[in-house]
Amino acid sequence: MVSTLHFSRRSLIKGIAAAPLAMPAILGRARAADPIRIGISGPMTGQFAQNGQWMKNGVAIAVKQVNDKGGIKGRMIEVRIADDLGPNPTAAANAVTKLATQDEVVALVGPHYTPGILPNLPLLAKYKIPCLTGATGPVVTQQGSPWVFRVRLNDAIGADLLVKYVTEDLQWKKIGLGYVNTAFGQSGIGVVKASLSKRGGEPALVQAHTDATKDYTSQILAFQQAGVDGIIVWTDDQPAGLIAKQSKTLGVKFGIAGNTAFSQPIFLGLAGEGADGCMAIGEFVKDNPDERVQNWKRLYSATHPGDEPELYATVYHDAAKLIIAAMERADAITGEGIQQALTAIRDFPGIVTRYGWTGNGDMTHSGIITKVAGGKPEIVKAISS
């Protein structure tokens, strides 16, 4: 039997009148259950795509951990990704604009590269989105942006400590300099020059290259002709690997030191035997016996069988954890709320280091000097600012 519902005119009017009052509550519950979107701006195609994949891997593990526990205040985290092609200012600006306007993210991981983050500083302010970046160029946090949070060691500190190490510990007297001709390479090598100068030295020879350079024979031989004890190079992973490999092939005897690139998997793979003896200022090696690092190594390898974590996966896992911690503490899960919560973070236990915000946006204050032996980077000295 089908029953028929009867409404009086009065009850129908009351129901219609009450509907607008109920709608905000219904919409409020719907919004509370909506996913929280965070974005990754990273190189997903092209020369630097492997680094972007590692970024995704590290963030994904952090997000899964929190979502498996019910999310943030009952809301799941959703990751949106945009391809910024690495150190490409135009592509990076397009990627961040897409994440902000189309995906409506409340926080960003990346862009990673100094040339990629710089054009985005006004966009981050415009859209009020905090960005956690591994870009190490000093210029990144010299702009005074409250929306940038650097999760790696500032080259203004790291480059100076590397110069101190090679001049005092290794007693290099005659030093050549090389750099990739981007904002990252220029700012890093600028710190190296200043550090040499304050120690009473000047570079024997300075040479620039691009990420597209494949043959470094003439530059390597020029360093040899200048009679250098060693060279300090500020560049990306691929050029670092080619410089080390070709130096080995040419049989030159000078030492090689540089930024973190000289300890990374892409560098090690390209350099082959030429990697041995190369030194780097950095923050992470997977064979560090620290318990946090080894627990992370096991977790990462269980998630990605046959693979082990490196710097990009690790530092951006930490970056995602920092965003999650800020969301949990924020009064409102908005870009502004997360930004304010990030500025209150002190001594946060990550895998790479213990993070703490300082007024210029730097959150990392320690690092390591490594030397490659038998194809693996080993820690030779721990340093802090």
Results as ranks from 00 to 15, higher is better:
V2A: 15
F7G: 03
R9L: 15
A19C: 15
L21R: 12
M23P: 07
A32T: 08
A32V: 13
I36K: 01
I38R: 03
G42E: 10
M44F: 08
M44H: 07
G52H: 02
Q53K: 13
V59L: 11
A60K: 07
V63M: 03
N67C: 08
K73S: 14
A82F: 05
L85F: 08
P89S: 14
Q102M: 13
D103Y: 14
E104P: 12
P111A: 10
P115M: 09
I117F: 05
L118K: 00
L121E: 07
L121I: 15
P122I: 07
L123W: 03
A125Y: 08
K126W: 06
K128T: 06
L132F: 12
G134C: 10
V139M: 09
V140T: 01
T141D: 03
G144V: 08
V148H: 01
I157V: 14
L161I: 10
L161Q: 12
E168G: 07
Q186K: 11
I189G: 02
V191A: 03
S197W: 02
E202L: 09
E202P: 01
L205D: 02
Q207G: 02
D211N: 11
I220Q: 06
L221F: 10
L221A: 11
F223Y: 15
I231S: 00
I232G: 00
W234T: 05
T235G: 01
D237S: 13
Q238P: 08
A240G: 04
Q246L: 08
S263N: 11
P265F: 07
L268V: 11
L270E: 07
A275C: 12
G277F: 09
C278N: 11
M279A: 07
I281H: 00
F284K: 01
P309S: 12
E310L: 14
A313D: 04
A325W: 05
M327W: 03
T334Y: 06
F348G: 04
I368C: 06
K371T: 09
G374T: 08
K381C: 09
